[in-house]
């Protein structure tokens, strides 16, 4: 496997949807190719960072307004009725 081919199948490898036989080739390549190994590792970490990140705080004034609206719009006889 060449670096190019590895790059083309990066999604499948990172997502764990790659065919087992291809997966073995993939790992064999990475064992002998530092750049590819590091790129895969970087990408995994990139995804984790975005997944775990808490990017924005809810503005307090908006939270209050939102709940005020929810209370106003809540149907007296129950939702969806």
């Amino acid at each position: 496997m060449k670096c190019e081919e590895l790059l083309a199948m990066l999604n499948e490898y990172v997502d764990g949807t790659v065919d087992p036989s291809v997966c073995m080739e993939y790992e064999k390549h990475m064992a002998g190719c530092d750049p590819c190994k590091v790129v895969v590792d970087n990408i995994r970490k990139t995804i984790v960072l975005y997944k775990e990140g808490k990017p924005y705080e809810l503005p307090l004034t908006f939270r209050n307004r939102l709940h005020e609206t929810l209370r106003q719009k809540w149907p007296k006889s129950g939702p969806g009725s």
Partner: peptide
């Protein structure tokens, strides 16, 4: 909430509003 309890629905909002807002942002 489906049974009409507003406090329960508000609690759902408290739990998920920041995530929804972040996604929208």
């Amino acid at each position: 909430s489906q049974g009409g309890e507003l406090a329960a629905f508000e609690e759902l909002a408290f739990r998920h509003e920041e995530k929804v807002y972040s996604l929208a942002m």
